[in-house]
Amino acid sequence: MSPPEKPRRASNLQRRSKLAGEAAAAAAEVETALDHPVDTDSAAFFDVDNTVMQGASIFHLARGLHRREFFTTREILGAAWKQAYFRIVGVEDPEHVADARSSALSFIAGHTVTELEELGEEIFDEAMAHRIWPGTRALAQLHLDEGQRVWLVTAAPIEIAQIIARRLGLTGAMGTVAEHENGVYTGRLVGEMLHGPAKAEAVKALAAREGLDLARCSAYSDSANDLPMLSLVGDPVAINPDATLRAHARQQGWRIRDYRTGRKAARAGLMAAALAGAAAGTVAAGMALKERRGHS
Rank of each mutant, 00 (worst) to 15 (best):
A10K: 13
K199M: 01
T32I: 08
L105E: 03
R63W: 14
A28S: 03
R209V: 01
R16V: 07
G253W: 11
L189K: 02
Q141R: 13
P197L: 05
A202Q: 01
E121I: 06
A202L: 09
S2T: 14
A273M: 12
S17P: 03
V150N: 03
V237C: 13
R263G: 08
L245F: 07
Y185M: 04
P157A: 10
G147E: 14
E181F: 04
G90Q: 04
L275H: 11
L65Y: 04
H66W: 15
T171N: 07
H111L: 06
A265K: 13
R131Q: 14
E201S: 13
P94G: 08
K290H: 10
L189G: 04
T282N: 12
E121M: 14
H60I: 06
K82I: 00
A161M: 10
V48K: 03
T154Q: 09
D235R: 08
L289C: 14
I108H: 00
G211V: 12
V91C: 02
S17Q: 10
R8D: 10
G183P: 09
H111V: 07
H195F: 11
V150Y: 08
G187M: 01
Y259L: 12
E146M: 02
A272V: 08
F46G: 05
G183Y: 03
P7K: 00
D41P: 07
A129I: 15
S57K: 04
L119Q: 10
T40G: 09
P241V: 05
P37R: 05
R74Y: 00
E201V: 06
Y85L: 13
G169D: 10
E192Y: 05
E179G: 01
A27K: 13
S106P: 03
R167M: 09
D242Y: 00
E126C: 13
L19D: 06
E95M: 05
S218T: 15
G175D: 01
Y259V: 11
I160T: 06
A26V: 02
G78T: 07
K199D: 02
L170S: 00
P94S: 09
T261E: 11
